[in-house]
């Protein structure tokens, strides 16, 4: 039984402080989000129950549940929610309320690595080496593509292209098709030798300063190269 002799809702208040338009109270308990969420039922929760815990001040449950890592902050609930409640945003805030040591270690690590350069943590030099190595191989083995390019740090190129860290790390040949496409189209593009990763796992740990840090680094790098466009590949 929930005995409500005084309603204390610290978590709710904290979220509302960070997100003035959090709309937690708006919930009509209509159940639309439940039916639209693939994470409904996981860890005994669903978006509506999750909000209800907040509304009724069940702070411990909220801070402990791992449902916040099954919610992928995909915002499909918010998309159709009649009240436009952004449950993803609320989940994000709660992830951030967890002490770092209680967060899923690999997720936090991805972000920590990201803050150094990229999510897999390969050194920037390795990235440059892999790109050049793969390029060399294509130019040698495929005569039709002997003038294929994969420029890095080309100052003043029109387009900047990011590279997901997965390819240079585990499947480098996956980089080639895009190079070929760009070559055929004939645009003037470049990679960067730092802050080249298109991903940003700091989006998911819940610390906005980490997320901002990585984006800022990427932005500075691209602006320094003087590129007019940033092509994101995912």
């Amino acid at each position: 039984m929930i005995d409500l002799k005084g309603l204390r809702r610290r978590v709710k208040a904290e979220i509302e402080k960070a997100v003035p338009d959090a709309r937690i109270d708006y919930c009509l308990t209509c159940g639309l989000c439940v039916s639209g969420c693939p994470a409904s039922g996981i860890e005994g929760l669903d978006p509506r129950k999750f909000l209800r815990l907040l509304v009724l001040g069940r702070d411990e449950d909220i801070l402990e549940t791992n449902w916040i890592y099954s919610c992928t902050i995909c915002q499909r609930c918010r998309y159709a929610c009649p009240m436009g409640i952004d449950i993803g945003r609320i989940v994000y805030e709660i992830r951030g309320m967890r002490p770092r040591e209680k967060r899923p270690p690999n997720l936090q690590r991805s972000c920590d690595l990201q803050k150094q350069s990229n999510s897999t943590g390969i050194p920037n030099d390795d990235f440059v080496w892999v790109v050049n190595d793969v390029l060399e191989e294509v130019r040698e083995n495929e005569p039709a593509w002997r003038d294929l390019k994969a420029p890095i740090d080309k100052q003043g190129a029109e387009y900047y292209l990011n590279q997901n860290a997965k390819e240079p790390t585990v499947e480098p040949e996956e980089m080639v098709p895009l190079w070929k496409i760009l070559h055929v189209v004939g645009i003037d593009w470049t990679y960067s030798s730092k802050w080249w990763d298109g991903a940003n796992y700091c989006l998911f740990t819940g610390d906005p300063e980490d997320w901002a840090y990585v984006v800022r680094k990427q932005a500075e790098t691209i602006d320094a190269l003087g590129c007019r466009y940033y092509i994101n590949t995912e």
Partner: peptide, 12 residues
């Protein structure tokens, strides 16, 4: 009874 959490609530 709370209709969503399906738990008894006591109010004062």
């Amino acid at each position: 009874r709370d209709h969503i959490l399906q738990e008894q609530i006591r109010l004062h």
